Amino acid sequence: MSGFLVTRRIGIDAGHRIMTHGSKCRHIHGHRYEIEASCRAVRLHDHGEQSGMALDFGFLKEEMMAVIDDPCDHGFIAQAADAELLRMFAPEDGTAADAWIAALREAVAQEGFAASTDCRLGTKLYVLPVPPTAEQLAEHWFNRLAARVAERSDGVSELARIRVWETPNCWADYGLAGF
């Protein structure tokens, strides 16, 4: 199938840990993530402010900033099951911390994620139901952005792929078949 593929890249800095990893990634560390969103279209807009475009790059940037940058940049991405780590972010110790963690987990169960700054030191915290690997982040952000891309492009474009660069040499892709 012929068509157009447009890509926008943003970068964020965030910490994470993979609690079950058998090597050094089980430790708290951070990355300079680069995230690419690629959208495909079989035609271009033929009128309006997106005339001649599959999707305005500025529109795509706005959506990526809202879904990825705003809640995650200079924050920490955690797995809901990582109770020891979450306790470090809890605003209080003891039973208040347990209630705070339970509320985060409930939000994750209902929404697929939780974002909070109600943390010790006011840190940004983004909680997922899965380990925060590059693969899982790519799938998660793809699922959160897909409908926004369709809406912002008036149905002309669809999100084809999210690529998450964890290092300059390592990345993971998630997207539609044949992207």
Score class of each variant (00 low, 15 high):
Ala115Met: 10
His74Asn: 11
Met88Asn: 15
Asp98His: 06
His74Met: 09
Ile77His: 04
Arg120Met: 03
Ala97Ile: 01
Thr123Asn: 13
Thr95His: 09
Ala80Trp: 02
Ala78Asp: 09
Gly94Asn: 13
Ala90Leu: 08
Leu104Phe: 11
Phe76Ser: 01
Val130Asn: 08
Arg148Ile: 09
Ala90Ile: 02
Cys72Ser: 15
Ala107Lys: 14
Arg120Glu: 05
Glu151Ala: 09
Ala80Glu: 01
Gly122Thr: 02
Gly122Lys: 09
Leu121Arg: 08
Ala103Gln: 03
Ala109Lys: 12
Pro129Arg: 02
Pro129Asn: 10
Gly122Tyr: 05
Ala138His: 03
Gln110Ile: 12
Glu111His: 15
Val67Ile: 13
Val130Trp: 11
His140Leu: 05
Phe76Leu: 11
Tyr126Val: 09
Gln110Lys: 12
Thr95Phe: 07
Pro91Glu: 03
Ala107Gln: 13
Phe142His: 06
Glu84Ile: 06
Ala102Gln: 07
Asn143Gln: 14
Ala114Phe: 03
Phe113Asn: 07
Trp141Pro: 01
Ala107Trp: 07
Ala80Met: 02
Met88Trp: 14
Pro131Ser: 03
Arg87Val: 04
Gly94Ile: 12
Phe142Glu: 06
Leu121Pro: 02
Leu145Asp: 07
His74Gln: 14
Trp141His: 04
Tyr126Cys: 13
Leu104Ala: 12
Ile101Val: 01
Gly112Cys: 00
Gly75Phe: 10
Glu84Gln: 05
Ala115Lys: 09
Ala80Leu: 04
Leu128Met: 06
Asp98Lys: 07
Asp82Gln: 01
Ala109Trp: 09
Gln110Met: 08
Ala109Val: 04
Phe113Gln: 09
Glu92Gln: 08
Glu151Arg: 14
Leu121Trp: 08
Trp100Asp: 06
Glu151His: 10
Asp69Asn: 11
Arg105Val: 07
Met65Gly: 15
Phe76Thr: 14
Thr133Tyr: 10
Cys72Tyr: 11
Ala90Met: 07
Ala134His: 09
Ala102Ser: 06
Asp70Phe: 10
Ala134Met: 14
Gln136Gly: 05
Val67Ala: 04
Asp82Ala: 01
Glu84Phe: 03
Ala107Ser: 12
Ile101Ser: 01
Ala83Ser: 04
Trp141Arg: 01
Gln136Arg: 10
Ile101Cys: 08
Ala115His: 11
Glu92Phe: 07
Gly112Ile: 00
Trp100Val: 05
Ala107Thr: 15
Arg148Cys: 13
Arg148Tyr: 08
Pro129Glu: 09
Pro132His: 03
Ala66Glu: 10
Asp98Leu: 04
Ala138Trp: 02
Cys119Arg: 10
Ala109Leu: 12
Val108Gly: 05
Thr123Tyr: 10
Tyr126Phe: 15
Asp98Met: 06
Asp69Gln: 10
Trp100Pro: 07
Leu145His: 04
Ala96Leu: 01
His140Trp: 05
Ser116Arg: 12
Ala83Tyr: 03
Pro131Gln: 05
Glu111Trp: 09
Ala66Thr: 05
Ala107Gly: 13
Arg87Glu: 02
Ala96Lys: 01
